[in-house]
């Protein structure tokens, strides 16, 4: 269980690779977070965000149709969505990527491959800051 995180929060996991979505889902499950919806890219994710309410977004960077960074910018430019914490989980970890994501308003950034511990650490950082 992650401190300061409601175990029922609704999480949207966005990745074009089903394997990675499974890994993220299982890692969240190991932290007691089971209310997870999957999206295959930014376009699919925006459609799901339009229909449903989510409390947290975890997204990859490299995806077809809409890259993670463009998805992040779309989320941050929407009055309805901009307050949702956004975690980028990606193999794209060059300095310029991290800086671009930070400027676009990312909440935290995890470099693949990641561990459950690093995911927990990032969740704590996001939700503790949010509740402070």
């Amino acid at each position: 269980m992650v401190a300061n995180v409601d175990p029922n929060i609704k999480i949207l996991v966005v990745d074009d690779f089903a394997t990675m979505r499974q890994i993220v889902k299982k890692s969240l499950g190991a932290l007691g977070l089971h209310n997870v919806t999957e999206a295959v890219d930014g376009v699919d994710a925006l459609a799901k965000l339009e229909k449903d309410q989510f409390n947290f977004i975890i997204s990859d960077w490299n995806m077809p149709n809409m890259m993670g960074i463009d998805f992040l910018k779309a989320v941050r430019s929407s009055d309805k969505l901009k307050a949702i914490p956004f975690l980028m989980v990606t193999a794209e970890a060059k300095r310029e990527n991290v800086i671009e994501a930070a400027k676009a308003g990312v909440s935290q950034y995890i470099v693949k491959p990641f561990t459950v511990e690093s995911l927990e650490e990032k969740l704590n950082a996001i939700f503790n800051r949010k509740s402070a």
Binding site: A93, R95, V98, I110, V111
Partner: peptide, 14 residues
């Protein structure tokens, strides 16, 4: 790519 530690340091800077 930079590793998680360097990424965290950069995020802290930012």
């Amino acid at each position: 790519n930079v590793d998680q530690e360097s990424t965290d340091a950069l995020l802290k800077e930012l």
